[in-house]
């Protein structure tokens, strides 16, 4: 993250304020396979968290994309579990798929069945006819 993009697209990643707050109040808990880093608020510092809990933060490696938080860290980040995955033996289920970022706006964007932008056979519609072909 260069200084230039820091100034002109501050919303793309962690801001100065975030980094300053985390440095002052946070405790590093661990990082995931994408390089995202997870922090927890130190006791007694800052405002009281929701329901009196300590705040938990994530800082992203590149673009801030919340869908990039893996399921194991998602659980910890949202107070579903209190033990971070680094402190337990976490094994992914076989049906869990690798993360795919949101592709909307790109050529790989999701097209529902029947979309005229999708390739392949579109479903039958009123006004369709079967043309005659010579062979």
């Amino acid at each position: 993250m260069g200084i230039f993009s820091e100034i002109f697209s501050w919303w793309g990643g962690n801001t100065w304020g975030t980094r300053l707050t985390i440095a002052r109040q946070g405790r590093f808990v661990g990082s995931d396979s994408f390089g995202n880093r997870y922090y927890e608020q130190l006791k007694g510092v800052g405002p009281e968290g929701p329901l009196g809990r300590l705040r938990r933060w994530v800082t992203y490696t590149k673009l801030a994309d919340p869908s990039k938080v893996p399921p194991e860290w998602h659980g910890w980040l949202h107070y579903t579990v209190d033990t971070p995955p680094t402190e337990e033996r976490y094994v992914a289920k076989p049906w869990q798929k690798p993360h795919v970022p949101n592709m909307t706006g790109t050529p790989q964007a999701y097209r529902p069945a029947g979309s005229i932008l999708a390739a392949g056979q579109r479903p039958k519609a009123t006004g369709d006819y079967k043309p005659w072909r010579p062979d």
């Binding site: 369709d128 006819y129 079967k130 043309p131 005659w132 062979d135």
Partner: peptide
Amino acid sequence: LRTQRLDQPYVRKDGRLV
């Protein structure tokens, strides 16, 4: 009325309709 419709002109070239 919606099957086997002729929907474009054809011309026979080299024995084949194109």
